[in-house]
Computed example of a mutant assay.
Amino acid sequence: MRGDIHERQLALTMKRTERNRVKRRLDGAEAGLKDARILRDRFHKKLTKEQQDVAKLGRFSFMNKINEWTGKWDEKMEKEIAEAAEAELKYNEAEKNLVDLEAEVTRLRADMKNPDFAYIDEDWADFLKEKETWIRRYDSVANSTLQKIADERVTLRSILREVDEARDAGSKASRALGAAIDKLGSAEGMSVWDTFLGGGLIVSALKYSEINSSDDYVHRAQRALRHFETELMDVQNVATESFTVNQNDVFTFTDIFFDNIFSDWAVHSRITDAKAKLNDVLRDVRRVQDDLARKRDEILHGLEKLDRQEREIIEA
Rank of each mutant, 00 (worst) to 15 (best):
L128F: 08
A110G: 07
L292N: 03
R157N: 15
V281I: 13
D151L: 02
S171P: 02
E241L: 12
E152Q: 10
R167I: 08
A316K: 11
A293F: 11
A180I: 01
I38L: 11
E78L: 14
G71W: 00
N248W: 10
D273E: 13
D53R: 13
A36Y: 05
R157S: 11
M233F: 10
G200N: 00
L282K: 06
R311S: 13
F228G: 08
Q51L: 12
D290V: 14
E298Y: 04
R311T: 14
L197T: 10
N212D: 08
L12D: 01
D151M: 06
V281F: 04
V238C: 02
Q52G: 14
E88P: 00
L184K: 11
I211H: 11
E165P: 00
M63E: 15
D182S: 12
T230R: 12
M77H: 12
F228Y: 06
V54C: 06
V281P: 01
S242Y: 10
V163Q: 09
V238N: 03
G199N: 02
A205T: 12
S191W: 04
E95G: 13
G199C: 08
A179C: 07
E188V: 13
D126I: 12
R175G: 14
Q289E: 08
Q52K: 14
G200I: 00
L89K: 05
V288Q: 00
A205F: 02
V22D: 00
W134Q: 11
V99W: 13
F117Y: 04
S263F: 02
S269M: 12
D168A: 15
L12K: 03
P115H: 05
K113P: 09
L89W: 05
R294D: 15
T195A: 03
E310T: 12
I314K: 09
I159H: 03
L47V: 05
S209W: 13
L177G: 06
A166C: 06
A293T: 14
I271K: 02
H227E: 10
V105W: 01
E312S: 10
I256F: 07
M14K: 15
D74R: 13
R24S: 11
D74C: 01
P115T: 12
E88Q: 07
V163R: 05
H6F: 15
G28T: 10
